[in-house]
Amino acid sequence: MNLLESNIRHLVRFTLNGAQVEGYAEPRLLLTDFLRHELGATGTHVGCEHGVCGACTILLDGRAVRSCLMLAVQVEGAAIETIEGLAQEDGGFSPLQQAFHENFALQCGYCTPGILMSMTEYLRDNPNPTKKEVRVALSGNLCRCTGYHEIVNAILDAAKALREEDGASS
């Protein structure tokens, strides 16, 4: 147990998309700002800073969370995944990204990283969701451009592709 003083920048280390990273943060520094401006991982976006819009959603130890509602110092030692780590190893789109691409499921793309990270967890736990379930799962991510229809279709397509991928590999 270590008290981190308010006006000092403290070393924070964790893994970001599998790679060990570190930087310095005052206790009050939001994780969003740390990711974006200390580590240069600007793919995670900020839309409200009060937890409602979902643009900042990342995976913390495999679970989708709002990074605007976390402090950088809280993730010491954690494993974080962001949009930058979503593509396949060869750089190609993951099934989720591919489905978004083919379905015109993004316009400005500002909400997209948060949605992709949310759905990464969601589809892992719910490989075969219904349309209605997808809408409920999406409700924590606001999008102003698309009207959601194509996003829902993309997620259903991605679920199918992932199931097939899974079926093929097992």
Binding site: I83, L86, H101, L106, G109
Partner: peptide, 13 residues
């Protein structure tokens, strides 16, 4: 398909 997506879907917007 939108060329804009290539950056936006990978966090490189």
């Amino acid at each position: 398909l939108r060329r804009e997506n290539l950056a936006l879907l990978t966090g490189k917007g």
